[in-house]
Each structure stands twice: as C-alpha cells, then as structure tokens.
Nucleic acid binder design. Structure first.
Lengths: 338, 338
DNA sequence: ATTATATAGGCGAACGTTCGCGCGAACGTT
DNA sequence: AACGTTCGCGCGAACGTTCGCCTATATAAT
C-alpha cells in the first residue's frame, strides 16, 4: 500500500479521470453502474480516504469549531468540562466538524485570538463559554458576522444565538423545595452583582420567596466568591444572626460554597439538614458522597453541549436553525442536606 | 478591508511577486532592506494573515495533534481533564500546533478512528491516554510509524515514548508516611489485576511495606472498582477483621474509594485519622474540604501534559527528543485523614 | 432524416501556499 | 577586458481537492 492514495491513484486504477472519481464519490455525477462499481472497488481496494486538508482548501472552509474555556486553578476544577467537551465533540463529529480548543486569555488580547483563528482560516465558527455582561468577543463576532453560539447569556439587548441553563429555574426549584419543607427564613450565599449568571440564578430565589409570601431580609443575602472559604464566612455570619432572624435554610450558587457552609454547621456541633438545610448548585462529582449527601441543582450539561453544536452547525451551513436561543431546565437532586 | 487578503494582495501592494512575499515572511530569501520594508508595510496595512489550510496543504502536514479520552459517567467525572487538556493546548500552541479532540470509542472500531484521522491528513500525531496492557492503538501506531506519545505505560516489552506519573512512588510515599506515623497494619484498597496503572501503584505499596519490615496479610488487599461503593464494601470487610489483624491504616488507589472508606468509619461511630488512617490518590477537587480533609497523592498533571506535547512535537519535527520516556514524581499531600 | 434531449465522462482551472530553479545586474577578481 | 560570484528577485509547478463547462455518444421526439 503506497503511503498516500489520492484521487489520481483511484482514477488510474478504475480507468477514469480523477475528477470523475471525485464527483461520483460526492454523488454529483451520474455514471453507468459498471464504472460506478469499478470506482467503488478501486476505492475499497486502495483504501482511499479523501484528504481533508485539500478538501477544506478547495471548499474554503475548515469544518472546525473554535472553543476555549477559562483555565481553573488546582482546587477550583472545572468538573463540567469533561461532559461539555465530549458531548460537543460527539455532536460535531456526527455533523462532519471537529473542535479546535485554544488557550483562554483574559483581557486585551482575547479578541485577537479569535480574530487570528478566523483570519488564518482555521475555524469556521465558535462556541463561547464563560460569557458575561459586555463580552468583547460577542461584539466582535457579531460585527464580523462570524457564526458563533454562546453557552450562557450576556446583555439582554444583544441579539445572538445562545444556549443556557435556566439558572433562575434552578434556584426557584431549590427555594420552593425548602419552602414546601416548611422553611420560612431562607438565606442565600450568592455571587457579586457583576455576575450575569449569578444574578439570573438569584432572580429565581427572589421570585420563589415572593410567591411563597416569604420576606427576604437584606442580611440573608451574602455575596462573594464561589469558594469554600466564602461559603464558610457567609455561613458564620448567617448563623451568628439573632435567633428570630437566623435562617433555617440556605441556598448557594455552587456546591463549593455549600460545602463551606456545611463545614461551619459541623464545627458548631450542629447538624446539616436538621439545624440548617443547605442546597448547592452544580452537582459536583463528590457532592453525593458528602455527609450528609448534598441536595443540589444539576445542570443538563451534555444536552447543552449538543445544542450548542447543533445551533452553530446549522448557522454555518447557512440553514436558519429552528430556534436560536435555548434555555434548558436544570433539575433539583434531593438528598439529605435539605 | 477586503474579505480575504492573500499573498497576491500583499504582493500587488508592495510591487513584488507573491512568491517573494512568501519567502521574505518565512525568512527564506534575502532581499534589499527597502523591498523588505515595503513588504512588511503592506502586510501590516492589509492585515495579512497566512491561510493555514493552504499552508498545511502545501507542506503536507496538518499541525494537529489528535487526542481522545474516555467518556466518564455523571458521578465518575474526569477532574483531571481540565488541567491536562489546557496544559497540552498551551504547550501545543506555543509550538505552532493545535489539538484535535475526538470521541473515544471502546473496542473494535477504536483503531479505525485513529487510522481515519491520519489517512485523511487531519492529524500528524497523537497523545494517547487511558492506555493499558496490549493496547491495540499502540501496536497500530508503531507499525504505521505514526508519531505518538502515551500518557501512561503499557507492556514493558514495547518500546515507545511515554510520559507517566510514577504511581509506585506515590503509593510508596503514602505507605512510608503511614509507617513513620507508627502504623504496622496497613491495608490497601486497590484495582483488579488487569490494571497496569493499579499494579504499578501497588508495587510501591509492597516495596514500602517490605522496606519497613512489615508483613502484608492477603486479606488486607482489596481489589475492585475505583468507586465509592467498592471503597465502602472493602472498608467494611477490613474493619470486620479480628482485632489483632485489623488494619489501622489503609491506602487507596483513588479518592473516591477513600471517601467510601471514610463513610464506613463514620457510620461505625469511629473517627477517620484516629481509628483508621486513610490516604487517597488523585487529590480530587473536593478532597481538601472533606471532614476530615483527605490526605492524598497529587499528580503533576500540567507537567505531564506539557511533557507529552514536548516529546510529541520533537518527534514530529524529526528532532530526536532528549528523553523519550518520562516518569514524573507525584506528591503526597498531608492532611488530617492520616 | 433531422433536431432536440438526455447520459456519461473528460478537461482546465482554481483554492493559497511553498519550493526549486533560473536569470539579470552588480560586484569583485584575475 | 574577461570571468566567476554573490545578491535580489521572478517564474513555474505542485500539494489534492471541487466545480463549471465542454464533448461525444446514445436515445427520443418531430
């Protein structure tokens, strides 16, 4: 078997011109059943596989989807990446595309990286993640009319395709669950005001409290980082409130904060679930094994990955996708912590 | 600005032939300082970026590195992927390469996927992970002389480039640490015999026990899946041993097993660390926040990713890498569980 | 018998690069 | 003055496809 078997080799073997082979394989030409079979046999025998680089060169497309994600630190690992990435990769492959991961750079140069990938013809479109308000990438991609889809929403006034998990619904489920369980004083450990994702999730909390006829005291809303440490500090403050204003339950914006809060409860000799109900968000891999197992909101990550690619591919192929904006419902996983 | 600015556009603007522009940009041609400057100015002004697809087509290389990883289930998340992938992506980008992730398929078709990527010219080489004994991919790649590097070792008799974490050293550190702390009866929750990684790690355990002059009873070695459930079952059996043969410490092959064991200790009203010392492996993101925080062996994942790409790129560029086989030392993280 | 129409397949060109070769001019050497 | 040697640059070709257009033969319609 020669090192590389091209169209010409197949053509020589089948006794036709190489262009004919190309057209037959792409179904762009009617030929007699015999020659068709001869060509197919030759392809089979020589093990011909079309060179994708040459193909892409001619077509002027790369069939690549750019993707980059925020690099996390040792203890803030992105446990969602595995699912998100592999679902995108599978969906992309099924549509004849591949993913091109590239380093995430904060600040100034970030848009340059996106521009470079397009200008050098390496990618046809992007999946964005970690979007927030006023994301410069979104502005750039819209202006250059480069196909993309965001995993997460940005400024409401911007019109672009996105897939997002309905964070408000997630916290609404969490809060409603606590309310049904009889809790009246429900606190929230949240993120700073500049987090679009955080604000959206908190909306669900506020709505549920309002709908339940429950009051929300300002001191029940703790805003800070999504870390174990902040979860600890916030829980300390909440548990130090005078008894009549002390929350009996708390929702958090991720499991790491929730675990911080759990630690405080244990340190005080109290019991998670009984003395303070806690609900997390994310369903981190270990959360089910904590003591007690953490009730939490699980996001349909694989579904999100699939949808992102589906919408993006439709765009890139020039088809108008049926829906440009998708909101996926998360699901409350009820365990013993609340 | 025109939609696409090619070499010809730059050449026209600078008043030279487009081949000259190419050579000057690639440093393959001496030209007068003036024309050189004219060319550079034109490049700048038009914002020329070489089309990589065309370049790859001509060079007959894709500058892509294929990578695929085992798809994990919801509760067995690959928390290492983020670090491994992003370190590879960064290192690759610095060397002018990109990563091409593709779906991991078990069994029959797996080698076909690798072959397809090479035969269609999409990748120049591979990084393999999740290798085990008799890995068909390794055999195939060696035979086809396709550049690759494995993250993890396989059959000892096969000669190929790999990067691995020294698992034996990891468990040796863990066992020695327990021995220094005065433990004499140290059990191990391990993986089945067909796991190359598992066997290697266990070697370190056995060596440390031998060196410490400690006996290893057969009933102290529990072999099964790397799950919470198996960790639980194994710990139950270990704690049910008669007092004089009951281990006072246990090493495990991953944090999930360790957490299963911790659960048992707690259920029995005993205390992890005091009544049974436990050491994990992996340093999963949550392990530091457990109660008590889990002592565990942390692997230098980023370093491994970097090394993989470094060795692979050297190979692909035809350079003989200085070392073809790298063994990286892990590090014991001492926390309160042991 | 003539003309129209379909059928089967060939041919040249192009996508944007890189690479080897060649050629004139300038320069230095005998 | 004749002859190398270097310098600066152009030219043609090629990488492996796809695509539009052309042609030759066979078939059908007038």
């Amino acid at each position: 078997m020669p090192l590389k078997v091209t169209l010409k080799a197949v053509a020589a073997h089948a006794g036709v011109s190489y262009q004919t082979v190309s057209k037959v394989l792409n179904g762009r030409l009617q030929v007699s059943p015999e020659t068709r079979q001869r060509i197919l046999d030759a392809v089979q025998e020589l093990g011909y596989r079309p060179n994708q680089i040459a193909r892409n060169m001619r077509i002027q497309r790369s069939f690549m989807i750019g993707y980059s994600w925020v690099q996390t630190s040792q203890d803030q690992v992105n446990h969602i990446l595995d699912q998100f990435l592999s679902s995108m990769v599978s969906e992309a492959e099924a549509a004849g595309y591949h993913l091109l991961p590239f380093p995430f750079r904060e600040g100034q140069g970030q848009v340059d990286d996106y521009r470079e990938l397009v200008d050098t013809g390496r990618v046809d479109g992007f999946v964005l993640s970690s979007v927030n308000y006023n994301d410069p990438r979104i502005e750039f991609l819209i202006e250059r009319k480069i196909p993309f889809v965001a995993f997460g929403r940005s400024n409401p006034e911007l019109e672009f395709p996105y897939v997002d998990v309905d964070g408000a619904d997630g916290l609404r489920q969490a809060a409603e669950y606590l309310i049904r369980a009889g809790h009246q004083r429900i606190a929230a450990i949240a993120w700073p005001h500049d987090s679009r994702v955080g604000n959206e999730r908190m909306r669900g909390y506020f709505e549920a409290m309002l709908a339940g006829g429950l009051e929300v005291l300002p001191e029940w809303i703790e805003r800070g980082e999504g870390t174990f440490e902040f979860g600890r500090e916030a829980a300390l403050r909440l548990l130090d409130l005078p008894l009549d204003r002390r929350p009996t339950a708390v929702v958090t914006l991720n499991d790491t904060q929730a675990i911080g809060a759990m630690a405080v409860v244990r340190e005080r000799g109290m019991q998670v679930g009984r003395d303070l109900a806690i609900v997390g968000f994310d369903d981190a891999p270990m959360s089910q094994y904590l003591f007690p197992p953490l009730s939490t909101v699980r996001q349909p990550i694989r579904e999100a990955g699939r949808k992102c690619v589906e919408i993006l591919v439709a765009q890139m192929e020039g088809r108008q996708p049926s829906v440009l904006q998708v909101l996926l419902p998360p699901r409350l996983i009820e365990r013993a912590s609340a």
